[in-house]
Each structure stands twice: as C-alpha cells, then as structure tokens.
Computed example of a mutant assay.
Amino acid sequence: MSQTPSMNAPYGQQPEEVDARVSAELSARRANLPAGTLQIIGGAVAIVAAFLSWASLRANSVSISVNGMGDVSGLPAGAELPETNIGDGWFVIGAGAVAALGGVLLVVLKQGALSVLGLIGGLGVLGLGVYELVQIETVIGRFEALGSGASGAVGIGIWLLIAGGAVTLIGVDPRFGVGPRTS
C-alpha cells in the first residue's frame, strides 16, 4: 500500500519519502556553509593583505615599507625607489573578490557548482602570493647586496595573502571534509 499524506496529520509529521528528501536537502545545504564560509574568509583576508606591508627595506637610518598597492612609506623626500615589481594589489583584490563572491553564492544559493568561483579565486590569490614572494625575495637580495647594513624583510601582507589563498582552496576541496556538497 502506498502511503499518502493525511490532511489531518499532526503538525510536523510527513510521509517517510518526503521526510527523507527534505532531510537530504537540508544536509546538503548545511554542508555548503563551512565551505562557503572558508571561501569568504580566504577572499577577505586576501583583500586586506593587499593593503598591508609586503616588504620592508632598511639601510642606515632609513626604513621604508611597500604595500601590495605599491604605496611606499618612510621614503625620504626627493628619494626614489627603484622598480620593485611590487604592487599587484589590484589583481589580488580582484582574485580575493572572486573567491569571496564564490563563497557568498555557495552559502546563499546552496549550489556546490558555484565552488568553481572559489577555486578560480583561491588559485589566483595563492598564485599571486607565491609570485610576489619570489619577486620580493629577489628585490631584498639585490638590496642587501648593496652592503652598508642594508637589510630587508618580507611583510605580513604576503604571508596573509598566501594564507588567504590556502584557506579558500581548503573551502573548495571536499577531501578536507568542508568542501561543497550537492547531494
């Protein structure tokens, strides 16, 4: 015999088939929440990292800092900084925004297929972070080769950028137990 819903059933009771389907849908929606949240956090961290220090250089009594947007602080008046190739902050902001948008859409629309935005943004953020780290290490090496107590350091912004990309990618990967699910 087929069970049909009764119009007089007590509040909250449904046929087993409907109950199982609703339960599976709610489980899938809840499963996307941590994945989307990690993508949002990773994208937001990357965006913030663009405005933080990516490199600091010191020589004698002068200490300068360069952020991801290419802004230099601490440079004496009239002095110029040689080309550093630091300043891909706008690309970082774009990639971070794509990652965060993917997370927001994943949480709001509950569609696991939207994790592709998190994947693209996360790979972009992580790739830019590693690329900029190599560039900064090269600039610091050249600067320190000048001698006279010249030294440099990678700034917190680069490390946060790489961490933001990694967090985003963890949110995309279901093998870590937090990736999007569509079942």
Rank of each mutant, 00 (worst) to 15 (best):
M7F: 13
L38N: 06
Q3C: 10
L160N: 10
D71G: 06
A49K: 00
R21A: 03
P15T: 14
F176K: 00
A50R: 03
A20R: 15
G129M: 00
F91E: 07
I47W: 01
G102T: 08
L128R: 08
L128M: 13
N67Y: 08
A50P: 01
E83C: 05
R30M: 10
L101E: 06
A20S: 12
G42I: 04
V66G: 02
D19T: 15
I41A: 11
A99V: 04
P10H: 09
N32V: 12
S183Q: 04
G124K: 00
S115N: 12
V139F: 15
G68L: 02
V125G: 00
G70C: 05
G89H: 07
K110I: 12
L81G: 01
S23P: 12
G179K: 05
S6I: 00
I170W: 04
G171Q: 09
V107Q: 06
A31P: 07
E17S: 13
A59T: 08
A35C: 10
G141Y: 05
V130P: 12
V72R: 02
Y11E: 11
V125F: 00
I47A: 03
A59W: 05
G112Y: 11
S27G: 14
V66M: 07
G141P: 03
V45L: 13
W54T: 00
A97V: 01
G103K: 01
E17I: 09
E25G: 07
L146V: 07
Q14V: 07
L160V: 08
L105E: 04
E144M: 09
A113Y: 12
G36K: 08
V66I: 15
L117T: 02
A97K: 01
I158H: 02
R175I: 04
G70L: 03
T138N: 15
D173Y: 11
W90F: 13
A77S: 13
L117N: 04
V125Q: 00
V72M: 05
G78C: 13
I40K: 07
V22R: 11
P82W: 05
E25H: 09
E25I: 15
V108P: 09
E80K: 10
Q39Y: 05
E17L: 10
L128K: 06
F51P: 01
G96W: 10
V107D: 02
G36V: 07
A163L: 15
P10Y: 02
G87I: 04
V108S: 12
S73L: 11
G43H: 02
L57D: 00
V62A: 05
A35W: 09
P174W: 03
I86S: 12
L114I: 01
V45Q: 05
G164E: 09
M1Y: 10
L133C: 06
V45Y: 03
V98P: 02
R58L: 07
A28Y: 08
S65W: 13
L114N: 02
G124P: 01
I158Y: 01
I120A: 07
E16K: 14
P174G: 01
K110A: 15
M7D: 13
G122W: 05
Q3H: 13
K110M: 08
G68I: 00
I162D: 07
A163G: 14
T4D: 14
D173H: 06
L114W: 03
L161Q: 14
